[in-house]
């Protein structure tokens, strides 16, 4: 069982390392992740929202839905913990 897990882990790691062949190098400004949407955020976020911290601007405004359901997720986590664990002391 342990050997099977080790083999599966090594196979997955090898597959992922093979996948890094096509990835951009570390710190490349022309990486695909940095050229599609983020120049718009960096250059225009302050004009559009008057917030110098671009992370906050994106979090609260451009991705407001994401953050809202984020709040709902932690809300649900709290409710789940209460409903899973809650009990009275004298039950023991």
């Amino acid at each position: 069982m342990k050997h099977l897990a080790l083999i599966a882990t090594l196979a997955t790691g090898a597959l992922l390392l093979y996948g890094t062949k096509d990835f951009p190098a570390w710190g490349d400004p022309q990486a695909p992740a940095s050229t599609y949407l983020s120049p718009h955020y960096i250059e225009d976020a302050v004009e559009e929202t008057h917030v110098p911290n671009i992370v906050t601007a994106v979090l609260g405004d451009y991705r407001g839905y994401d953050t809202m359901f984020e709040t709902v997720v932690i809300y649900c986590a709290g409710m789940a913990v209460v409903s899973v664990l809650s009990r009275k002391r004298e039950e023991e």
Partner: peptide
């Protein structure tokens, strides 16, 4: 930022941070 002189190459990508 208000003057529009921020260069995208001089700032790291904020989207993965968010």
């Amino acid at each position: 930022g208000l003057a529009g002189t921020v260069e995208a190459a001089s700032t790291v990508n904020p989207l993965p941070h968010v």
